[in-house]
Structures are given as C-alpha cells and as structure tokens.
Design a protein around this nucleic acid. Structure first.
Lengths: 220, 220
DNA sequence: TCTAAAATTTAGTCTTGCCTAAATTATTTT
DNA sequence: AAAATAATTTAGGCAAGACTAAATTTTAGA
C-alpha cells in the first residue's frame, strides 16, 4: 500500500531529523509537523507496528527509519526536489516561492510524472535551493560540499545549497545575492564572534554563523 | 473554507451530471464516484446543510448545485482541464494518459499555479480532449460546436471534442485518427442503423451512433 | 390499482489522524 | 539523591468519510 500523505510527511521529516545520526524525538517531530506531541506518539506507534515496519521505535528513545522507511522518505524527497526544480524552470517560480507548492504536489504525482520531469530537466543533481536530489533508485548522492562556516580567509568557492531557511530568510539571502551557484570569496573571519566577512557579487557582507552554517559551498 | 478533495469530487460530478438540466440522482452519483449510494446520501445531506449551501437537496428528488456550488465545481474543472492541457503540451503526455494524473493534481494546486499554467499556455479555450475550459472568473464558455451525429452527407468539419470516453475507447479513437483538430468529411449516413461513414485522414470509417454521439465538431 | 423491483434513506460501524487532559518517565538542578 | 522540570505516553474524544444491513419510499409492471 502506498503511504498516506500524512505518513509520507512523517517519514520525510524523520529522515531529515535523523540525518545527523541520532534518532528523532517526539517533540522535534511534533514541532516540525505542526502537530501535538501526543498525536506523534500515536502515529509512530502505528507506523512502527506495520507489516513491513517503516520505522524503529522504543518508548522514550525516539525513532529512526528502517530501510523500507528510508526508501519511502527518499521517494517523497525526490518528488519534492524535482518538483521545485521543475516549477522554477518551467513556470518561472522564484527560488523562495516553490516550497509550499511542492509540499502539496509531492504526495500526489505518479511515478510516470516523476520520470517525465526528471527526463525533461536532464536528471538534475540538485534542486534550486542547491539540495541534492535522491536518485531514481532512491539513494541519496554523496555531498561533496563544505559548509560556508568552514571557509577561512582568502578562500573562495561557489555556493551550492542553502538549507533550512524559511521564506523570509530566503528572500533576504536572495537580496544579498546569496543564491546557489554564486561565487563567493572570504575576506576575513573572526573566531571570537564567529562573524565571516565575504564578498558576493562584488559586494561585501558580514555574516553570523546562524546564517552561514546553513550555507554550503564547493571550494574553487 | 476550501472544500475537501472529497467535496470537490462530489461537486465536479454533480456539475457534470446536471448539465442536461435535471438533478443528479443518488445512484448516478454513487456510480460516478465509485462509492456506495448510502454514503452519497450522507454526504449530500451534509453539503446541503453547510453555511453557504453548496447544493440543493430534497429527499428522493436528487441534487442540483447552488451558485456557490457551481463556482466551486467550475474551479475544479478549470484546474483539471488546464492541467491536462499543460501535461500534454509540456511533458508529452498523450491524449489518453493525462486524465488520472490531472484527477489527483486538480485538488492540490494553488491559484497561483493555475494562473501560471493558464498564462504559459496562452489562456487556452479547450483542453486536449476538446472540452471547454471554464474562464478565470469561473464561467463556462458557450459551446458553438455540433455533435458529429448531426452531420449529413458531404458535410465537412473539424473535430473539436470527444466526450465521456474511457481510456480504452480513447486509445481506439486515436488509432482511427479521431482526435481533436482533425478535419473530417461525411461520406454517407444511414438513417436506419444510424451508421455514419466518414473520411478521416484519408481513411474511411463507419461509426455507430454510440460512438459518434460523443464527438463534437465545428462545421467548415 | 396493487405489487414487485428499484432507488433511496436511516442506523449503526469503522478507520484515519488529529486533539486535550492526565499520568508517567527522564533529565536537570539544587 | 531528592525535587523540579521537561519530555513522553496513555486514555478518551472528535470529525470526515466510507461501509453494511435494514427500513422506507418511488416507480413500474401486471
């Protein structure tokens, strides 16, 4: 059986929350899904007890995905990122407008649709935010990029992706010229306040780690 | 409140079933929606009793849409037909493959998305099946076409639309060359068995009324 | 017109997925 | 280590929307 929209949202969110290696907590899931913690408990208990279990769960220990769950999550994430790419390229959506639309479409498109847009786009590796797109056989490609915050004086690179920003921040970053594919150069770095001074599109900006830690680059 | 997917399906189906002027029966709705009649009764009772009533209903008398219901129905139908057009034009879907995909997408796209594809397609009047697309202000344009079955010997026309055929029949018609925009010429007509002999793409076919009555043309 | 068949409605259930309130278990603080 | 706080789970409910079985109404045929 195809997972419900709701199940897909849980799996996708658990995937993202467990990318750091540790299990996802009930509370974090509740926050990300805009759902009450008690509801999350009920749902994960159900999902952990299905025929092919989608996730691993022990009381008070948080959840992780089984390989079946991971596949299902990557399927949704692939849909989402292909859709964002597609909407930007063919309908002129801007970088920060596509998320919501893709969030709804990702649950209803067919595998055929997925194949068609992937082919039409030339099987892209990253979406407009710079995020890696899971492959057709549902594996997440390795990320060879570096966080911007790891760059030091005089290093240069090209922005690959900007993660975990909300629509407002995305718009702000776009105004600064901080969008994927932009070349960047580090002017200075302060180890005390963790401020990074960078040159982007000939303009200089000072960035706090709270922003820079979300930006990934490819060194050049 | 935006109508649920289920409500949208009811409204769309009622719209189609009442295009002939008479109310839609519980049984017909159940058949079209693949739902048991008892469930339909429950649902239409609910919809008839909402704040702005979406439909008019009296026991055993069938249902018709209120103007609010009609608007909501046309919204869904507009989505559906724009989506079909868009999928065919930009992703190379064939004429008979698009229906299912549009059936799911129609419920989740935003008004912004609707505007974008309408503009990208140049605000088309008809979808790939030849059906009229409701306008942006949710009115159904007048249909100036004629049923193929009204054509008589030596008349010619251009196929505009093919209605109410399932996927198998659509494929069959496509094989015969009977697709929208195809010029057509009547060779003969038999008033006895209602068989119509037509020439399409230089080939001659005999059509029974059960087929021809679903095909609409524009006389030339 | 009376009756049998067909259509419709009522009544009562079920599943999904969410909620609140209260109870329990973990984690911190002192 | 006990107490306070935070996180999690349990229990009980609710709304949507579908189903089955049984009752009722309409329609049609003899």
């Amino acid at each position: 059986m195809k997972p419900s929209t709701s199940t897909q949202d849980y799996l996708k969110t658990i995937y993202e929350l467990t990318e750091n290696g540790s299990p996802a907590s009930t509370n974090d899931l509740a926050r990300e899904l805009n759902i009450k913690p008690a509801s999350v408990t009920g749902m994960i208990q159900k999902l952990a007890g299905e025929k092919p279990a989608l996730l691993e769960y022990q009381k008070h220990q948080g959840v992780t995905l089984t390989s079946a769950g991971k596949k299902a999550a990557l399927e949704v994430i692939r849909h989402h990122r292909l859709l964002e790419t597609w909407l930007v390229q063919t309908l002129g959506y801007s970088w920060d407008e596509v998320h919501e639309e893709a969030e709804r479409l990702e649950h209803v498109i067919s595998e055929d649709f997925e194949r068609r847009i992937a082919a039409a786009l030339g099987h892209p590796l990253r979406d407009p935010h710079g995020e890696l797109i899971p492959t057709a056989d549902l594996k997440m490609p390795l990320d060879d990029s570096t966080p911007l915050s790891a760059l030091r004086k005089d290093q240069t690179g090209k922005i690959l992706s900007i993660k975990g920003a909300d629509a407002n921040l995305l718009r702000h970053l776009e105004e600064l010229g901080l969008t994927p594919n932009t070349p960047i150069e580090v002017i200075s770095y302060s180890p005390f306040d963790h401020n990074l001074t960078v040159k982007v599109n000939k303009k200089t900006h000072v960035l706090g780690l709270n922003i820079t830690s979300k930006i990934f680059i490819e060194e050049t």
